Amino acid sequence: MRLPDGLPADIDLTRPSAARVYDYFLGGAHNFEVDRRLAEQIAAMTPHLAETMRAGRAFLRRGVRMLVGEGIDQFLDIGSGIPTAGNVHEVAREIDPRVRVVYVDIDPVAVAHSRSILAGDEQTGVVHGDLREPERILAEAQKLGLIDFGRPVGVLLAGVVHFIPDSDDPQEILATLRAATVPGSHLLLSHATHEGQPPEMLDAQRLSARTSTEITLRSRADVTAFFGGFTVVEPGVVHLPLWRPDGPADAVADPQRLGAFGGVGRHDGGAG
């Protein structure tokens, strides 16, 4: 893979990245041999993982379409990875061409690729940011002039909060993001779980420690709590394929085996 321009000189390309491993599982081309080796190790232990990744992306797309249908025309996508085909702004603009999106990721390679891919698109922006610093993300997103937090916004946290350990207080991080939004805003979230998972899934979790972002598996109750005072819309926090499937193509025989929950919460004006 050709390296994108704008990479920091001190980046360590010998260590796998969660964003690039994810890109590999989705069939993307923005990954290195070190990422592919780790992905193949994880896949050998958890044969459903690639399916889980695809189900997560399908959930995100369904959620984005639902939010645009609710009138959301600006999105903050945190933990976006590399916005290849079928990304948030493409899906959203199929319904509303005016949609603006700010993509945020911690991986400098993902950020550099994103800026290269999105060059010339004035309705998108890219922030190099860490979810553990939500105030900075909010400030940087606003600085781009693409998001007005005085209007409803869609905050997307698809497959990223499980990279925040309990020691970094993810509840407080989510509270900060929710507090920055106004009524009518929505929060979309998907998260890996240990509930109902076989031992090999837990072994794969330990492999994630080889990236800079180890995964913390959480329960449905934990994931639901991340929505705080937001109203969780139907069908609630459920296994990914069960969240408003478009049709038979979204169905799987055993949704639990994919090991992840997803849901969408709406800011109805109460405490966030």
Rank of each mutant, 00 (worst) to 15 (best):
I78T: 00
P97M: 07
T46A: 13
T216Y: 08
V91A: 12
R178W: 12
T124W: 03
E122T: 13
R57Q: 07
P248Q: 14
P47Q: 11
Q142H: 04
A112L: 11
H191P: 07
S116Y: 12
S219P: 13
I215E: 05
R132I: 05
S185K: 11
R115Y: 02
G236Y: 15
A43I: 02
V238C: 13
A50R: 15
E94C: 15
F163E: 05
L144I: 02
P165K: 01
G129C: 03
V91H: 06
T46K: 08
I72M: 09
A112D: 08
I137E: 00
E90M: 06
F25Y: 14
R115C: 04
G154W: 00
Q74S: 08
A44C: 05
A92C: 13
G129S: 06
G229L: 02
E33V: 15
I11C: 08
R2H: 14
A271W: 13
A18G: 07
S114W: 12
G265L: 08
L177Q: 01
G120T: 09
R62Y: 13
N31T: 05
S114T: 01
G184C: 11
R65G: 12
S167P: 09
A50Y: 08
E122C: 08
Q171W: 13
V161T: 15
V99I: 15
H267N: 10
P16V: 11
R266Q: 06
Q197C: 03
W243N: 00
R36I: 03
A110P: 09
V237M: 05
D23G: 00
L131F: 01
A55H: 08
L38S: 03
L189Q: 05
P47A: 02
D250I: 02
R266F: 09
G79Y: 05
P8E: 04
T176V: 14
G6T: 01
L174G: 06
E195A: 11
I137D: 01
I106G: 07
V21S: 10
L7D: 02
L49S: 07
D23Y: 13
E94N: 11
V161R: 04
